[in-house]
């Protein structure tokens, strides 16, 4: 998937992946896509909750080798 910006949240625990995602999105423009890579298994539910509550669509999420990759579109 194409993306405009990447956030490396590897090694970070709650709430850092979410807070850093919010900060990264704040620097982007509408319809741009942010790729977030996390190693925190808690971020799977949290990222979905973040997307739902903020209205920034979570386009996809995948897991590979203990890493979670999310694509969030800025609303």
């Amino acid at each position: 998937m194409n993306f405009d910006k990447e956030l490396n949240a590897r090694g970070m625990s709650c709430p850092l992946p979410i807070v850093k995602t919010k900060k990264a999105l704040a620097e982007m423009t509408s319809n741009q896509v942010l790729k977030v890579i996390s190693t925190d298994c808690g971020s799977v539910k949290d990222m979905a909750a973040f997307a739902e509550q903020t209205g920034n669509p979570l386009l996809s999420q995948e897991e590979a080798n203990g890493e979670y990759v999310f694509y969030v579109k800025k609303k």
């Binding site: 709650c14 709430p15 979410i18 807070v19 995602t21 919010k22 973040f50 903020t54």
Partner: peptide, 11 residues
Amino acid sequence: FILGSTAAALG
């Protein structure tokens, strides 16, 4: 601080 920063991130 965790709940405060997270809630702020959620708007």
